[in-house]
Write a protein that binds this DNA or RNA. Sequence first.
DNA 1: TTAAATTGTATCAATAAATGTTACAGAACG
DNA 2: CGTTCTGTAACATTTATTGATACAATTTAA
Lengths: 141, 141
Amino acid sequence: MAANSQFSIAVHILTMLAKNCDERVKSDYLAKSVNTNPVVIRRLLCNLQEAKLVVSQVGASGGTSLAKAPENIKLSEIYKAVSSGEIFSLHRKTPNQDCPVGKNIEAILCRLQKEIDKTIEEKLAEYSLRDIIGMVVQSKG
Amino acid sequence: MAANSQFSIAVHILTMLAKNCDERVKSDYLAKSVNTNPVVIRRLLCNLQEAKLVVSQVGASGGTSLAKAPENIKLSEIYKAVSSGEIFSLHRKTPNQDCPVGKNIEAILCRLQKEIDKTIEEKLAEYSLRDIIGMVVQSKG
DNA sequence: TTAAATTGTATCAATAAATGTTACAGAACG
DNA sequence: CGTTCTGTAACATTTATTGATACAATTTAA
C-alpha cells in the first residue's frame, strides 16, 4: 500500500489550527500547506472531529477550529484518533493450527502489540500541540 | 499495500527454530507452519542471517538454525532486523515550504519518530525468544 | 561422479491499503 | 437565492508487501 501518513498530516494540520486559534480555517488552505487534495484533509478532519479534537462548520464562511486549547491536546490523543493500533500486522493467513507454535503465536503477538501500542501512547502523551508550536517557532528563528 | 507482517512471521519462525535448537530446519517446514510460500520464509531468513540471528546452510540436508541461544535473542533484535523504523510515514509529498509549519514539521516529526522507535525497542528488549517459547508452552497446557 | 535436496535470488504477478480525484448533496451565510 | 463550504460517495492511482515460478549454486550421499 501507499504508506500511512495520517498521523503526520494530522499533527501538521492541527498545528496550523493551533496557530490560528481564533478563526475557522478552510480545508483548501490546509491542503495547500500539506500539499495534497482538500478531500484528503476533510476526511482526516472528520476523524479528528469524532475524536472531539476539532469542530467544523459547514456552509459559507465555514471551516474548522480546535475544540480545545493547544496545551490540552496531547499527541497521544491524535495518535488514537487516526491509528488502527496495528504497529505491525499479524499473519495474513491463519497459521497452521496443528503446529503448537502456529496455534498460539497469534494470541501472543496480539498481546504484545497492545503492550507496544500502550507504550507509544505513553510516549506521545509527553507532548502537546503547544509543544509542537514551540518547536516550529524555534526552528524559524 | 498489503500490510507488513514481517515481524510477526519472524517471531514465529524464530520460535520454531528455538524449539528445534539441535537441528537444521528447512524453509518448507517453516512455510507450512506459517501457511505461506517457502520463498517468503527464505527471504526473511536472509534478513535474519544478516542480523546474525540465524545461520543457514545450503545444499542437501541444509537448513537454518539459531545463531544464539533463545535466551540471548531479544525481540528488539528481531524488530531491528526486519523493520524500517517507520512507525508512521512522513508526508508523501513535501509540504509547502512557504508555510512556517510546512517548512518545519517534517524535521519535528522525524525526531519524534526516532524517539518512538527507541521506546518500542526498549519495550521489546524486555522479552527474549525464551519468553515466547514459555508462552507457547503455557498456552498448550 | 552423478542425482537429489536445499538455499539464495531474480523476476513478475497478485493483493491490498492508502492517497488522489471528481462529483455533488446539503448547510449556512450574506 | 446565489455563493461558499463541509461531508461523503465512488472510483482511479500509487505503492509496499506477499505470493509464485524458475533456476543457478552448493552440499550431501549413494
